[in-house]
């Protein structure tokens, strides 16, 4: 039963990773950029939710929607201001810029409000159910449901809507997509908007679940989510979700075995192993560079 409990905790953590990982994977799929600042979008989302709940008295869902909206705009802004000019430059230049943007956001937030953490208000009723000996709080159940719903909505957007088709076309071949009359710029912006909104949602969920947030909170979950995306095969949407859950479970298991200080190392070891032995991830296809 203890194990079932850990499994459930792992899935809860994994759903947060998965939500963030989706943004990484979508952006990477479309412009081949590791958007380092994605973890900061997640942080901004969490703070937006915090202010909305604590100061404006919004409920969980309005706060969630608001923070998704704010993050969508913020993500597009980052793309337009920083990344757009870099589309034809080297990948290294783009990566360096992304690292710079990430740090810039962190320290501007610290500059404005200080580095002290904030305690997330309790917005959700908290009752515990006992299912087969596993303690499941209503809170974590709700969070899990919200995450899964968002993932399903995303799946619908990507496969059933016009913008989703455009996104897939651009990530497959931007030049061809352009020739087909797809507005590549808008499609890229839409990708950032959707990915960032998901990160915003993850931010609020994280706050409610772990109750403590701070301006540097995006760094580690951001990296972990990136690892999840690589694990599932970067650019592949279901891969990011599975990768997120796998990573969440692995981390919880490592902690449960008494190695909680090594939890972060576990994620990086997974990353390095996967990069070395199967760089295209669990679901990716190996491809050879054309010469």
């Amino acid at each position: 039963m203890e194990w079932l409990q850990q499994l459930f905790n792992g899935i809860s953590l994994g759903s947060i990773y998965a939500l963030i990982a989706l943004g990484y994977t979508m952006v990477y799929g479309i412009i081949k950029l590791i958007n380092f600042a994605h973890g900061e979008v997640f942080m901004i989302g969490s703070f937006t939710g915090f202010y909305a709940i604590a100061f404006w008295g919004l409920g969980f869902f309005p706060a969630l929607i608001l923070s998704m909206a704010v993050c969508a705009v913020f993500g597009v802004l980052i793309e337009r201001v920083a990344y757009k000019r870099l589309r034809d430059s080297t990948r290294i230049a783009a990566l360096i810029t992304a690292i710079g943007v990430s740090l810039l956001i962190q320290y501007v937030v610290i500059y404005i409000r200080g580095a002290q953490p904030e305690a997330y208000p309790n917005v959700l009723p908290n009752r515990s159910f006992d299912v087969f000996g596993v303690q499941i709080s209503s809170q974590s159940l709700l969070i899990l449901v919200v995450s899964v719903v968002l993932m399903i909505v995303l799946q619908f957007i990507v496969h059933r809507t016009k913008i989703g088709k455009a996104m897939r076309a651009v990530s497959y071949d931007p030049d061809a997509a352009k020739l087909m009359g797809i507005n590549v710029n808008n499609t890229i912006s839409a990708t950032f908007a959707i990915g960032s909104a998901l990160a915003g949602a993850a931010g609020v969920i994280f706050g409610v679940y772990y109750t403590k947030i701070d301006p540097l909170m995006g760094v580690i979950p951001g990296l972990k989510a990136f690892i999840a995306a690589v694990l599932g095969g970067i650019g592949i949407i279901p891969g990011a979700v599975i990768g997120g859950f796998v990573l969440g479970i692995v981390e919880t298991v490592v902690s449960a075995l008494g190695f909680s200080l090594w939890r972060d190392a576990a994620a990086f070891i997974i990353l390095i192993l996967i990069l070395i032995f199967r760089p295209s991830g669990i679901f990716g296809k190996n491809s050879k560079e054309k010469v």
Binding site: I34, F226, D264
Partner: peptide, 23 residues
């Protein structure tokens, strides 16, 4: 091991190695 990796993948792997050393 990093030799099999290029560009941004290598970057992430080196970051991972550094973090492991620190941990």
């Amino acid at each position: 091991p990093s030799l099999r990796l290029r560009g941004d993948y290598l970057a992430i792997a080196t970051l991972g190695f550094a973090e492991i050393i620190r941990i």
